[in-house]
């Protein structure tokens, strides 16, 4: 998904990855930068990271997708190579108003990947197809 982000955001995730690998923490200056770049959804995304809400699903074909468990337990399927989330915030803020780069769920995916705290789960090829094609969140 990296190529869909502006350089400043990519650099920020690289810094978080490096620092978290070394110290298992995200220092305040990076948290402030995160809030500056992504606005209010940064805090909500960090909350999702704390709850280990992001799972990388893999099927025998090799296809992968991310599944994010929202605050209310709703499951959102996000793609590996481009930005899409079935949540209302993505449709309204990102797609319609063009006011944000991404929603808290996709940001949580980036953060979990950078911090290497993504859960792993296997599903069948058919289950993967159903998850990828489902139009609404579960």
């Amino acid at each position: 998904m990296r190529s869909m982000l502006p350089a400043v955001a990519e650099q920020l995730f690289r810094d978080i990855q490096k620092t978290y690998q070394e110290t298992s923490q995200i220092p305040n200056d990076l948290l402030i930068a995160l809030r500056f770049v992504f606005g209010s959804c940064a805090l909500q995304a960090l909350d999702l990271v704390d709850q280990r809400s992001v799972t990388c699903l893999s099927s025998p074909s090799g296809r992968k997708a991310f599944q994010v468990t929202g605050g209310s337990g709703t499951l959102y399927t996000c793609f590996l190579s481009c930005h899409y989330c079935p949540c209302p915030a993505f449709a309204y803020t990102v797609l319609r108003r063009n006011e944000g780069l991404l929603c808290k769920h996709i940001l949580a995916v980036y953060l979990c990947q950078a911090m290497a705290v993504t859960q792993q789960e296997s599903v069948s090829d058919q289950q993967m197809s159903t998850l990828l094609s489902r139009t609404a969140a579960l």
Binding site: F79, S81, C82, Y84, P86, A91, Y92, L95, R96, T135
Partner: peptide, 18 residues
């Protein structure tokens, strides 16, 4: 410009690209 319609267009495009 209903968000649900935009979301459908984004879902289809993202699925095709992915």
């Amino acid at each position: 410009s209903h968000p649900a319609e935009l979301s459908s267009a984004a879902h289809l495009s993202a699925l095709l690209c992915d």
